[in-house]
Amino acid sequence: MSRTGSGREIFLATHRIIGLFAGAIFVLIGLSGALLAFREDIDEWLNAPLMRVESPTRPAMRPLDEIFAAATAAIPADGRPERITLPRHSRAAAIVSYMVESDDLDSYFHQLFVDPYTAKVIGSRLYSHGDDVFSQPFVQIVMAFHWTLLLGANNAYLVGAVGILLFFSVLFGLYLWRPRNGRWRQGLTIKWGASFERVAYDAHRCVGAYFAILLLATLATGVAMIFKPATHSLATLISPVRPEPDFGKSTPIPGRAPIGIDAAVASAEQIFPTGRLHWILLPSGEDGVYVVGEQSADEPNRTKTFRNVGVDRYSGRVLQTQDRGEFTAGETLLEWLFPLHCGEAFGALGRTMVLLTGLAPLLLYVTGVLRWRHKRRARRRTI
């Protein structure tokens, strides 16, 4: 279809309809995503007494077994420890997560915060409780809103469907933005001395043009994560994608007590001698295993790690490993979805770009609505 005539009108009408009705949702999702780009920092700022500690002149962490022992003493009898997450930086607390299951099989997930330099518990909080979103910390509420609009995890596909519509709307907007007279600079600047209507029109075009690639990337990765089974199937078309690793089972040894956490980490470090210790998933049950995660410097995902080692809790023997260095192309694609979506793959710069991208839908919606109203008034005057 040519740029003039029915083809362009169809694209314009589709872009306008999606923008007017789905655009408001896009604004809310974008603003929440902007906050989540720096979610760890915001969480620590809001909960500083719990999550921050005084860093000594010469920081030296206490043994992990000592940190865990302090946390275990504070965990209720019906609590089941699940993992230890190491401090993000020198002033952050270590986090021991545990679960409490009620009589009606409802699960409550808690976090204990431990000073890594003194091995003293400094506080705790309820982190997650099923669909009771508002019992969770602020950042968790924002996250639930971002990908479900607080409609529940089972309805996240509705946000995914809106994301697909918006993805095509951005593409249509790019098509409509391309200057027909070949004057590209005109499509990338705002005539500030012109009328208010023209400034709003130029602002809409410029914001859309400058942020189009980032908007398309965040929309595509967000939709891919919501429709994970379909994304997994598409990734297998690129290369084989293995199932989630099974780290095996521990074998009890008569007369021998389970090894400690530090010993499990020492076993894992024989496999991955370099990197940052990110977390230790704790054994569940008598045959459970330690899963030690060592984060490499070039790993795009800073929230979790894909270099994990399963360690027998009795013998300290390595049972299974997961090494992102051996990922297929399809597995690498799946690994990059989340860090691309939130910007953490590129550090502070990437997070800042995602923050700005999250603000772009608000500017696009306001200027788009203004442009739509201007055109409506112009049509009425000609009738």
Score class of each variant (00 low, 15 high):
S284R: 14
F138P: 02
G350E: 03
W336R: 04
L282A: 03
T72K: 15
L370Y: 13
R376L: 15
F168G: 05
G350F: 00
W336V: 12
R381V: 12
S315Q: 11
G7W: 05
T148I: 09
A22G: 12
D43P: 01
A37D: 11
S135Y: 10
L216D: 02
N301P: 01
A77P: 03
P179N: 05
R313N: 02
G260L: 01
L215W: 05
I271L: 08
D104S: 15
Y175A: 02
Y127D: 09
A378V: 10
G275S: 13
G130E: 10
D104N: 14
E299D: 12
A257Q: 14
M51L: 04
R62W: 08
L174D: 04
L340S: 02
A360W: 02
R381E: 12
I25Y: 13
P361E: 01
R180Y: 09
Y290N: 01
R58S: 14
S2N: 15
T221N: 07
L12K: 12
F167P: 00
T148Q: 11
I213W: 14
T221W: 02
Q140Y: 10
G187M: 01
S250C: 04
I67F: 04
L281T: 11
Y201L: 13
R324V: 00
S124M: 07
R58N: 14
I17G: 10
L171P: 04
I259R: 00
P56I: 13
F247Q: 00
R324M: 01
R91N: 15
V142A: 14
N301C: 07
Y127E: 15
A209P: 08
R185S: 08
Y175M: 07
Q140L: 09
I253V: 15
R39F: 14
F11T: 10
H341K: 04
E197I: 10
R183K: 14
L219G: 01
T4H: 11
R379C: 09
F272V: 02
H232V: 08
L46G: 08
P63S: 08
T367K: 09
P300L: 11
D202M: 05
I271N: 03
G343D: 05
V96G: 00
L86S: 03
